[in-house]
Structures are given as C-alpha cells and as structure tokens.
Design a binder for these strands. Structure first.
Lengths: 298, 298
DNA sequence: ATCTACTGATAAGGCTTCCTTATCACCATT
DNA sequence: AATGGTGATAAGGAAGCCTTATCAGTAGAT
C-alpha cells in the first residue's frame, strides 16, 4: 500500500530541511520540538527511509540524506499545489474570483444593473462577469440551459417553469410616456380613459394591457413601433404618447415624462430566476444577495 | 487562514461525487457511511460552501453544487499529484528506480562488476546506472565531489581521506604473469628472486613493489609498458614476464597464467569508498549491500 | 578537563480527531 | 400503509497528535 502524506507533515519536513533544524522548524510551525521530531519520524517510517542524516550521533548540523534531498522538491511542489487550490477555492467562496454569467431583460439591464454591478465589482478585480440581455422567455431559456447562473425576467407562466424559482424584486408599473410639454404631463396619475383623446403609439409592451380593463386602448392606437429607439424619437418629436413599463423609460430623460396609470394599475413583477435544485456559485449567490439588499427595500 | 485539506478527505469527496452516493463512497473507502458524511461536512466547513446539493430535502440523487463541480477536478489533480509522488518515493526507497552513479578502478570494473551488475539490475528495469572507470585517486575525487554515489578503489593515504569510509572487499595480490608455455608457468608460487633470470616488463602497477623487498626488480626491468593492451600483447608474443595484481589479468586467458608472489606477498586492498557523513541513496545502498553479500565470503 | 548551551530523542499523559454503532428523518417505491 | 433506499445525527471509544518533562550527545568556553 502506498503511503499517504499529510500536508502538515510535509510542511514540517520542508521547514526542518530549509531552516536546518528541528527547533527552528518547530517555532515556524507553532509547535514544540518533540512534535516535529515525531512528525518527521512518522514520515520516515512511511517512506521506510531516513530523510535526515543520523542525528543522534556525532554530527552537528541537521542535513538531508540524498533520499531526503530527492524528496524535498517534490514535497515543496505538492504543498504549493495544495496551497494554490486552497487559495483558489477560498477566493471563489468569497466571490473574489470566478466567472459569473447572468441574463436580464433590457429594462432592468439598462436602468438598474449598471450602477448595481459597478458597485458590486468594486474590490473584486478578478471576478469576470458575462452579461446577456434579451426578452423574458430568452432569459428563462438561458437559465434552463444553464448558460447563465441566474436570470432577471418577468414572472410568467409559472406552471411551465416549476423547475425554476422566481424571487420578485422590482415592480414595473405601466404608465403613460409623453413629452414634458404635453398636456398630460401635468398629471400625477392617469385613468386609461383619459388617453382616448390623444394619439397613442403601440409598442411591444402594449399587450400587458390586454388582461386589464384598458384593453380597448390597444385597438385605439393608430401606430405601432416595436423598436425602442424609434419609439422614443417619435415621442420626443411630439408625435403622440405611449404606454410603457416604468423601467423601460430612460430614467433621467430631459424631454419625456412618465405618469403612472392609476386605473387600471398594471404591474409586472420582475425578479430573479434560478433553477430550483441547483445552488448558485458563490459569486452568483453574492450578487443575488447584493441585489436583494439594494433593491428590495426600495 | 487558508484551509488545509487532507488527502483522504479529498478522496472521499471525489468518490462521493463520482459514485453519486455516500454509501457507495463509504464502501470504496472501507469506511462506514457516517464517516463519509462527517468527512464531507468537515470539508464543506473548511470551504464554507456546500459541495453537494441540499441532501436532507426532497431531492433524490446526490449531485454536486456548481462550487463542488469547480472543486472536483482540482481535488482529483491534487490527489493524483500526491499519489505520483508517493509512488515515486516508494519505488526509489525500494531501489526500483532512480539514478545510481558509481566509479571504479579498471581492474574491478572489468573483472568483477560486469556480472555483478548484470544480476543486480535484474528486475529493476527503471534503475539507471552511470558507470565511470578511472584510477584510484580519480575515484576518490569523484566520491569527494559527489559526482558518484560511491566508488570502488584501493585503500590509500587514509589520513588524507578522513571524511571517507573505506570498506575493504577484495584483496588483489601481486603475482607474475607469463605465457602458459613459459618455464615459470609450472610454479604454484614464486619468490621474487626467481624472476631475476627472466626478462621483466615493468608497468603502471610495478611501483606497488617499491615498498617491499622486491624493490630491486623494478630497476631490473628493461622495458616499461603503461598500456595494458600492449602489455598483454607483448606477453602473449613471448617477449617476457611481468608482475600484475591478479584482478588486472584477464580472468579466463587462453594464453597467459598468473602465479602469485609468495615472497614478498604484496596485496592491495580494494573496497568501497563512501563519504562518512552522507547516507547513500536507496539504490546505491542496495548495490553496496549486494556487493558485500556476493563478494565478501569469497 | 569540566561546564554550559546547544542539538534532537524519548516517555507519559491529555486533548482532539476520527471512526464506529445505533438510530432517525425523509423520499420513492411497492 | 409498508418497505427499502437515501443521508444526517448522537454517543462512545480508539487512534493520532501535541504537550511537558527529561535525557543523551556534541561543541565551545572557560
């Protein structure tokens, strides 16, 4: 049977060899000298060869045998290998390193995550982050395929995603977006019926109103623009108004304002999606915790 | 402080991961299942991260966490590294491997060592041997410089070599070498004076007679040949006789014979030279032991 | 030459670690 | 509901490791 070395034991050996003495090694190991003696003896027994020259006899200095000399570099390498792994794992556990992948719907990706991530990666220069943005179903798919550690998406079709866990975080309320000089801009909140007299531009999120009493508005809109950049441009040009979830509207817009719909109140929950039976990597878990701490109270 | 892993513990982890179960791993480790549970838990505590998915709860299969998956290959590599070293050292300790260097004077090198080494390297195909032959002082020098593990040389100038240990093994007696059909070939032993009537060829070893009563013979010789091949050829050609140590004479010569000098008996001791304060590598020690066992009784 | 200061080895006891047996809680079968 | 599988847990004991105290040997100083 092959002997099994203990890392501690190898360390003792290396220290005795390099410091040329049992006492010096004992001090370095924070052990007493007999402990080191026994440790070395145990190692020698395992190898059935002495590592140090006959030390009970006449000679003065603690010196390696040729066998010990052959062993020394190997022992050092093994210790270094061990320490490298130990350090790697510790760094990963402290989410100071590793690779974190996440996917998010564009609204959160652009409105919320940038500053959040900026703060999160502070002090963790070796943490690599891959970031994908796509619509909710694509996010769910990426979580499912384990292309990402977790996703940020809307809660939907729960029965189809029983293998996933959804943690709600943000509530994205639908509201009206119009230029700041538009008559509707005066209001603090709006009833859907008040939109009927204005030119309403439909967009990809308009179908969120389908299940509400505001459904008639959808037929009401003469224009439909799927692209967000174009939509914003049209609004800024004073072409009309639209409905959008709050997080889809540029936060600090100079020209547009957002007025929440009070009737009906349509809210879509956005949150974190993970696989139920899979833990997160430490960095991913840390980011989730960070997001929760930062965004939930708000 | 960085955690310190035990190889055994890592093995347990790898086995649980690969055999997908604590019971299976326990069997492989020749331990009970609770032992494995505790071992894994200890490892998880050291890492402060779980390695396997929550296993008290609903799920069936024992599955790694992403963190565990990251750790698995590293743990395997470290175990393999450890085992490689363990095996290397064991092979070396059993002198099945390694590099053995020795130096010897030519007589022993050519007359004794070949068959001895042939037998010694039997069953040790991975043991490399480097072999040097040179005169005694060169052998001593190589031992001193640690160019060789040990040397085979004559005992001489003990006071100059207090740092070396000499183990006498062979006794190389000076005798007369002549063709088998030479008149002297009849004798079982010879007195030095009987050589005075024959043509005596001097050689490198003739000075060994300097300290004996046979000293007059040295002046007596008309020829001096330092090269052994030429010397043998001259002898075979019937040119004359010479004195040589026994081991310098080809053992199974068809044409020459060796008659020991009875007066004076000049013997030079040949043996193993090692550094006193240095142990031998296991293969070197094994060869020394082997030589002693084989050659001393003879 | 003896004394002192150093080396590391050794012995006995205690503490810690690890493993064992016995049992439990949980889930998936039957 | 009963059975057989998973792994977790508790308590006791064995083994390993470290400690203090002491010893033996060498080197250098007086």
């Amino acid at each position: 049977m092959l002997p099994e070395f203990k890392i501690t034991q190898l360390r003792h050996f290396v220290w005795v060899a390099e410091l040329k003495g049992f006492h010096a090694a004992a001090e370095k190991a924070h052990r007493t000298q007999p402990a080191i003696s026994l440790s070395i003896r145990d190692l020698e027994n395992k190898l059935s060869e002495s590592l140090f020259e006959k030390r009970n006899a006449k000679t003065a200095k603690t010196e390696l045998t040729p066998f010990g000399e052959y062993f020394l570099p190997k022992a050092k390498e093994l210790i270094e290998h061990h320490d490298r792994i130990s350090e790697d794992m510790t760094l990963l556990a402290e989410h100071k390193t590793g690779h974190l992948r996440l996917a998010s719907v564009p609204s959160i990706a652009s409105q919320v995550l940038p500053e959040l991530l900026l703060e999160f990666v502070n002090n963790t220069p070796d943490l690599h982050i891959s970031f994908f943005d796509d619509n909710s179903s694509a996010v769910y798919r990426m979580v499912e395929n384990q292309q990402v550690d977790f996703g940020i998406a809307h809660l939907f079709h729960e029965q189809e995603h029983s293998d996933k866990t959804f943690i709600p975080i943000w509530e994205d309320q639908i509201g009206v977006v119009c230029p700041k000089d538009h008559p509707l801009a005066e209001f603090k909140e709006l009833h859907w019926k008040e939109l009927r007299n204005h030119r309403l531009i439909g967009n990809g999120t308009s179908r969120l109103l389908e299940d509400s009493e505001a459904r008639p508005l959808i037929g009401h809109s003469q224009f439909y623009i799927s692209n967000m950049i174009s939509l914003i441009a049209m609004l800024e040009a004073g072409f009309g108004v639209t409905t959008l979830p709050r997080y889809a509207v540029p936060k600090e817009s100079e020209t547009l304002c957002f007025i929440p719909l009070s009737t009906p109140v349509v809210v879509r929950r956005i949150g974190i999606v993970t696989l139920t039976n899979r833990s997160l990597t430490p960095p991913a878990q840390a980011l989730v915790d960070f997001i929760l701490a930062r965004s939930r109270p708000a």
